[in-house]
Write a protein that binds this DNA or RNA. Structure first.
Lengths: 200, 200
DNA sequence: GCGGATACTAGAACACGTTCTTGTACGGCG
DNA sequence: CGCCGTACAAGAACGTGTTCTAGTATCCGC
């Protein structure tokens, strides 16, 4: 259960300056994404804002997609910490999972540009980004599974359910950024899927 | 129910030469996609192979994503016709839906490069491609719903189920082209989702 | 403190999606 | 038949992700 973090799997020891650079890059990325979405995250601009050379940016994150997926891992980590502060309300699995996914969804959709950038990157990820994407999916699955089991160990079935719900969640995000459904509809669809998948 | 085709919604009357150009473009697209996937479908190359100028290609399909989504609609249409030739085998909803999705999945995965190109385009679609994407999704939903109801009229619930299954189907394709799961695993996951969503 | 490796900077260069420009062919209308 | 507008051809040009080059700084072992 629960991989502690989906962030960098590379366990290279970094100097303080390097950690600071990495942090500046992620911050610049989030700021640009928040302002104008995926297309506004331009590598030259990220490099300039984080005060590193373009080549250095590419040394830290080998592509725009790597960069944005890493930024998403960073955001999810923040959300996980925030959620862990207090117990998840709800007496049934459905209620708790709905709570967690709703919190996450709304927290993201409060910043539609950022969401668009992060989700689009997840979708654009090819095999070279597999590690980072797996990290994000694990973090997300952890959120769902914790809500389902409320602490106790998950069954194999639980993991499968979490996977399906996550698939639906991502697919609905895509539908939203494909302009085919409104952001309220997204939430209705996800709730419906939760009720369906987790019905007793 | 069942929009007859998800292809061009534009009902502009085309001359014979124009229909031929459009067909050549789609064929060239499919050929290139089949050979090298998404990145091998280069607009200059498509234009050259279909013997139209680059500007003309863009007149017919305003972006690479439009082009590939239209190609997917074309392929799904072929599949629909093929499936309609004979009755769908299976006595339960699960069996029939499994049959249809398995046929479709395998038929696509027999050509992984093509699948990668088409699925990636679906994921990359933004609001400007909403019409084409909706067409593809309708075609796909029709396939599933027809399998579920085996002819009779679908309930509102059925449509929702078809939507969820389609979401899972796409999400699993992404997982596959993200290099995170093998093509057998995809199929297991989809079967599992079918069993779960359509359990009685 | 010194030498060599590694990381970083600055910026040019390249690739491909997309747009723009200029000239030409074609199809309908008087 | 001749004219005009629209579609097409050919290719240059532009933007942004990515790579490459040359020079400089920083860090680590001696």
């Amino acid at each position: 259960m629960a991989t502690p973090a989906g962030a960098a799997v590379t366990s290279e020891p970094e100097t303080t300056a390097q950690r600071a650079r990495r942090a500046r890059i992620i911050q610049a990325t989030l700021a640009l994404a928040s302002r104008g979405g995926y297309e506004a995250v331009q590598m030259r601009e990220v490099a300039e804002r984080s005060e590193v050379a373009l080549g250095t940016l590419y040394r830290y994150f080998p592509s725009k997609v790597h960069l944005l997926v890493s930024a998403m891992a960073h955001e999810l980590e923040r959300m996980r910490i925030r959620l862990q502060r207090k117990a998840i309300p709800g007496t049934t699995r459905q209620e708790r999972v709905s709570y967690v996914l709703e919190r996450s969804t709304h927290s993201l959709q409060r910043d539609p540009n950022l969401t668009e950038a992060l989700v689009r990157a997840m979708m654009a990820a090819d095999a070279t980004v597999a590690d980072e994407v797996t990290g994000v999916r694990n973090q997300m699955a952890d959120l769902i599974i914790q809500a389902m089991r409320n602490g106790s160990a998950p069954s194999e079935e639980d993991v499968a359910y979490a996977g399906i719900l996550q698939d639906v969640w991502f697919a609905r995000q895509i539908a939203w950024l494909g302009g085919r459904v409104s952001s309220e509809d997204i939430w209705n669809d996800i709730e419906q899927a939760i009720a369906l998948v987790l019905r007793d």
